[in-house]
């Protein structure tokens, strides 16, 4: 029956040259799409804005866990979230006793001088007793796993911090545009 070769006088079938051009076009499109999709590795982008002891945990726990799941993770630290990356300040993050109805003391008492220090000490003791990882451990582990920690340049200037104040491996000199770009590329975006 058919030899599979189109007869030259059949005008409805595309010519070999036309088909080749079409294949080439499709190959280019596929290459572009592949480049856009990347290597297929899922991405997560977290914006960390809080610097209290309790609020430092969620971004770090999620970042390290996502890295364990094979995600490429970036955490953009801005405003008080920057203290999490500050080598010295990260070791003395405080817990606020005011405005948290789960605290065992009423707000009027919680507002007294020294109360934040006391609740922070209580929390630190619980963290130690429970063998919960410290902030420093979580940062070190996350860095080991390839998590990229970014320190917002505007906040560094605002707080008068120095680039050397941060943990080794922290990316500085980045702004909101970098964060937006990461979020646009990411499969999971979180503001903490």
């Amino acid at each position: 029956m058919s030899t599979g070769t189109p007869s030259p006088d059949d005008e409805t079938d595309p010519s070999r040259a036309e088909l080749e051009a079409r294949v080439e076009e499709l190959e280019e499109t596929t290459a572009d799409l592949k480049a856009e999709v990347g290597d297929g590795q899922p991405k997560m982008s977290i914006i960390a804005t809080k610097g209290t002891l309790d609020m430092a945990y969620p971004p770090l726990i999620l970042a390290s866990t996502a890295a364990a799941f094979g995600y490429e993770v970036t955490v953009f630290h801005t405003f008080w979230g920057l203290d999490i990356l500050h080598e010295e300040r990260s070791k003395s993050l405080k817990l606020s006793s005011v405005g948290n109805p789960n605290m065992p003391v009423p707000n009027a008492v919680a507002a007294l001088p020294g109360m934040d220090r006391m609740t922070t000490k209580m929390m630190e003791k619980r963290i130690a007793d429970n063998d919960t990882a410290t902030i420093e451990e979580l940062i070190d582990t996350s860095l080991d796993m390839g998590v990229e920690f970014q320190a917002c340049q505007m906040t560094i200037d605002l707080m008068d911090y120095d680039e050397d104040d941060f943990y080794d491996g922290v990316t500085t000199g980045v702004g909101a545009a970098t964060a937006i770009q990461d979020m646009a590329d990411a499969d999971i975006q979180l503001l903490v």
């Binding site: 390290s64 866990t65 364990a68 429970n130 990882a133 979580l138």
Partner: peptide, 10 residues
């Protein structure tokens, strides 16, 4: 505790 068992396993 969380997240260390998963992270260290990875």
């Amino acid at each position: 505790n969380c997240p260390m068992p998963v992270v260290k396993t990875k």
